[in-house]
């Protein structure tokens, strides 16, 4: 699975300060660390980039390209910052992201055409995030058809089902999983991508990793192509590169509904089984899910 490093994100204090002060060092360090850790793309999240969008978009892309040889996933809702960044990407970038919102259709999608980028298209519409598999399907069919008309081919589209936190809306975790499974039949040729860490948003920080890793393995089993993820989690990268076979098998067993004697497992394995059961919606989530 393709991993897109998520750690250059404006929500991080280090990143927002570095961007504000145009201080390249902390950002270049993060870029290098993520490259070494095994990222395939680097996500650069600028948020709304209200101030000097064009200048900041170009500056950030240049700063990162000076030290990292990876393609960039440029992540901002500001079309000016997006265009300024895309214009100077050395490798073919990923526009992150467009959606079915009318604003996105008119401002973002044309940039993907103009700069011949690959583009993430999410299931979001003017009505918000669709609540179940069927409405996600309806939304993405419409939006991809629109993109096709603009001249963007399925091969350049990375579909994002929108991952919601298990702590906020447990049912959505399963819906996104189902959606990924049926996506290739709906839209042959498209790729898929998720913002993986969102599944653990709101969960106590020390417990986020196991949720992210377990959900990644589950999504991968259902055919996920790529994830924007915490590549600085070595266990996550190892799992993605085919390691942790025993853990992976246990997670798959939970997904397939096979019986597991969880009590007889070592603690680490048992925790993955508990996590997979929560993500499958078999057990009600609470922050103490590993303790029950």
């Amino acid at each position: 699975m393709i991993l897109i490093g998520e750690n250059i994100h404006i929500i991080s204090k280090v990143v927002s300060e570095a961007v504000r002060n145009r201080d390249a060092a902390p950002l270049q360090l993060l870029a290098r660390e993520q490259s070494l850790a095994g990222a395939d793309y680097l996500d650069l999240n600028l948020g709304p980039a209200r101030k000097d969008p064009e200048e900041v978009g170009a500056w950030l892309v240049n700063t990162v390209q000076e030290v990292a040889d990876l393609p960039i996933s440029l992540d901002t809702m500001n079309p000016l910052a997006m265009e300024a960044g895309l214009k100077i990407c050395k490798k073919r970038p990923l526009l992150n992201s467009a959606s079915g919102k009318s604003e996105s259709k008119s401002n973002m999608m044309p940039l993907a055409v103009k700069y011949r980028t690959q583009v993430i298209i999410s299931v979001i519409t003017d009505q918000g995030c669709p609540p179940d598999v069927d409405s996600r399907v309806e939304s993405i069919m419409d939006t991809v058809a629109y993109a096709n008309e603009l001249g963007i081919s399925n091969e350049d589209i990375w579909v994002d089902p929108i991952i919601l936190p298990v702590s906020a809306d447990q049912k959505q975790v399963r819906e996104a999983l189902e959606f990924i499974k049926i996506l290739p039949d709906l839209l042959p040729g498209v790729k898929s991508v998720v913002g993986l860490s969102n599944v653990s948003n709101g969960t106590p920080p020390h417990l986020r990793g196991i949720l992210n890793r377990t959900y990644m393995a589950m999504l991968e089993k259902n055919g996920l192509y790529s994830a924007i993820a915490d590549v600085l989690d070595p266990e996550l990268v190892e799992l993605n590169h085919g390691g942790q076979e025993a853990i992976r098998k246990l997670i798959y067993k939970v997904m397939d509904g096979e019986p597991i004697d969880a009590a007889g497992l070592p603690e680490r394995e048992r925790n993955y089984v508990k996590t997979a059961r929560v993500l499958m919606g078999e057990a009600l989530y609470s922050h103490a899910w590993l303790e029950s």
Partner: peptide
């Protein structure tokens, strides 16, 4: 979710 956590 908080209810379950406290119970646990």
């Amino acid at each position: 979710n908080l209810e379950k956590e406290l119970n646990v």
